[in-house]
Amino acid sequence: MLIPSLAVATPFSFPLPSSPQEKSYIPALTYSKGFIFDENKFDKIDYLEVESKKHLNLAREVAEESIVLLKNDGILPLNKEKIKTIGVIGPNANSRRSLDGNYHGTASRYITALEGIQDYVGEDIRVLYSVGCELSSEKSEVLSAKPYDRISEALSVADYCDVIVLCLGLDETLEGEEGDTGNAYFSGDKKDLLLPKPQQILLDALLNLNKPMIVSIFSGSAMDLRIAQNANALLQTWYPGAMGGSTCKYNLWRGFSECKIAYNNI
């Protein structure tokens, strides 16, 4: 809501608030005046600091430390020597949008989950990929005769792999703040806490294969993940940032050994 007395004010000359409603805006005005209009210490940061090696390493470290291990039946960490083929499946497996979330800049390079796994295993392990389904749309191809047109491809990938990494969840087109026009419901509220229907169908189809499977959920809000409880491992990945995919060597191969012990003792 725009307060009339503030609408005519210049950035450097705010009128004193009079009504209780206007007084409630004092913290916001202080924040805006101090960070947008006045000089501050951040103005002196050299632009070459953006995406410096130090900051990229920090972004990678933050992404690694923020991932939450919700379930692990012992499948993690993976044994690189015992895997010949890995299937990376899902609408968020190769999605840059699932890395960013809301309130973000533009990086010069993004590493998706698929790219992170490919970079880490190199030529030692064959990596197969399928989008499986869209985040919420029934069709990946508009001209497809039937809905859920990529699930058959995902099942073919799964047949040939030793382990599945399934990347599901949301992105900023499905969740956001009130009034966010990019949000599916505009209000920012979700109808429920479930995965969108296409992802539920994909997940069920892959679970029925009884293949070793790790499910990674990219989202920023609460979700009901009981549908994924039969997966061998379940990760809450959040929106990990541009370096998010590079964390695969931590959360799939090198790390989580201590978390696994802690989980099994619960």
Rank of each mutant, 00 (worst) to 15 (best):
V165G: 00
A184S: 02
L29S: 06
K211D: 13
Y250M: 12
F14L: 15
S246D: 14
K146F: 11
K260E: 06
I125F: 09
Y160G: 02
Y148Q: 04
V142K: 14
Y25V: 12
Y103E: 13
E258C: 05
P17T: 08
D73K: 09
A242Y: 15
N94Y: 09
Y120R: 01
A93F: 04
S219E: 05
N251S: 02
T112G: 11
F186G: 01
L78E: 01
V50I: 13
S216K: 13
F12S: 03
A262R: 15
K191Q: 12
S108Y: 05
K33T: 07
A158Y: 01
Q118T: 02
A93K: 03
G182I: 00
F42G: 01
C133Q: 07
L168A: 01
F35N: 12
E49F: 02
S246T: 08
Q236D: 03
F14Q: 11
E141W: 10
N208W: 06
V88Y: 10
L56Y: 06
S219H: 11
E177F: 07
V127E: 08
F218N: 15
Y129W: 04
I45M: 06
E115D: 12
A184N: 01
K190H: 08
G116L: 07
L174R: 05
V131I: 15
L99H: 07
P147I: 03
E115S: 03
D189K: 14
S156P: 01
D100T: 04
I125K: 15
C248R: 05
A158M: 01
D192R: 15
G188C: 13
C259S: 07
L114A: 11
Q229H: 03
K71F: 01
K146R: 12
Y160V: 05
E175M: 05
E61C: 01
E64Q: 11
S98I: 04
I227K: 06
Q118K: 13
F35Y: 09
I111V: 14
P4T: 01
S19K: 08
L6M: 03
E65H: 10
L166N: 00
